[in-house]
């Protein structure tokens, strides 16, 4: 009883902070604070998505940055063609979010279907290595795209547009991100507690038991992998719009590592934990990098300590039992 009330209080408090961030940022006159909150919201979407397979499916994908990068580049490349007037495969392009965003997500889903099909032929440490290797392939392909800026990346003239909603206003864009974060998290929670989620979690706990109950593991894992990739791609789409800049770094191996760190820091298999993990991680990164240019010398060991001792993450105690 105590913990369930506390849980509610923490969730409500967190939600309040997310919703109130623009007002808290205003009096301090700092656009930086709103930017920080927005980055947290975007990373949180990626972290929740990764938690779906990492925490509930025990699929350690070390390559999720490829979907973050692809989502971003899909937005960037369409914007590039729309702006320059050069048609893209005969299409003159569009700036409408309702067209570009689904397109980007479909691209991520396709990539995930291919990568997932190959990677899921293995498990354990090979799965980690293979997802990492495929992400590196995407990274190098992005670097080699000279017409889209190669190494330097691509600047976007403006954000995508939505009917009735002005995404160019920072506060409005922030609230769109928050709405998507809440919607996506609710969707993932639904999946976790669904009939599909029951099987997915059973496969994590005992593959042998599940197979002997009649479950074919592959389609369940592949489906979860693709859904997770779509969420991470959505984060990439939002990032491209937030920063109005995409570069191969979005798909770098270190980005995949960051996502994993955020999920473990927040609490594996809790969905809400990774949101807190994103907040702490991004804020810590910001504070440390203001303090010293050698902030990695502190951040690195923090990650190592989290891995050694923080088995349950920030939310572990609060949301101790995994859903289900």
């Amino acid at each position: 009883m105590m913990t369930s009330r506390l849980r509610l209080a923490v969730v409500a408090g967190g939600l309040f902070l997310l919703l109130a961030a623009p007002f808290l940022a205003q009096p301090t006159g700092s656009a930086g604070l709103l930017g920080l909150a927005n980055r947290i919201a975007i990373y949180a979407i990626a972290a929740v998505s990764l938690d779906l397979i990492l925490g509930y499916g025990a699929l350690v994908s070390f390559g999720h940055a490829m979907f973050f990068g692809l989502g971003g580049y899909a937005v960037g490349i369409v914007a590039f063609h729309t702006g320059s007037g050069e048609p893209l495969l005969g299409w003159s392009g569009s700036n409408a979010a309702l067209i570009v965003w689904p397109l980007a997500l479909v691209a991520c889903a396709l990539l995930a279907a291919i990568v997932g099909t190959l990677s899921l032929k293995t498990s354990g440490v090979q799965f980690i290595m293979i997802t990492l290797a495929f992400a590196q392939m995407v990274f190098f392909v992005l670097v080699s795209l000279q017409s889209y800026g190669g190494d330097d990346g691509l600047l976007l003239d403006r954000r995508n547009t939505l009917p009735f909603i002005d995404l160019s206003r920072p506060t409005t864009f922030y609230y769109v991100c928050i709405a998507l974060l809440i919607g996506w998290t609710a969707f993932c929670a639904r999946i976790v507690n669904s009939r599909f989620g029951l099987v997915l979690q059973a496969l994590r706990q005992s593959e042998r038991r599940s197979i002997n109950l009649g479950v074919d593991p592959f389609p369940f894992r592949l489906t979860a992998f693709v859904i997770s990739a779509i969420g991470t791609g959505l984060a990439g789409v939002l990032w491209a719009n937030y920063a109005r800049f995409v570069s191969p770094d979005m798909a770098a191996w270190s980005k995949s590592g960051e996502f994993i760190a955020i999920v473990v820091l927040g609490g594996l298999g809790t969905l809400l934990g990774p949101i807190a993990g994103a907040a702490v991680f991004i804020a810590l990164e910001q504070i440390l990098s203001i303090w010293t240019e050698h902030w990695m010398i502190v951040m690195g060991p923090i990650l190592t300590l989290v891995a050694l001792f923080g088995r349950r993450g920030l939310a572990g105690r609060l949301f101790g039992e995994r859903n289900g």
Partner: peptide, 25 residues
């Protein structure tokens, strides 16, 4: 040596932290 019996996930995270540390050092 503290990670031998732990899940691969934690080995990844711990050694990832060591990479960042080593690069900076």
């Amino acid at each position: 040596q503290w990670l031998y019996r732990r899940d691969h996930l934690y080995q990844v995270l711990a050694t990832l932290g060591l990479i960042l540390f080593t690069n900076e050092a």
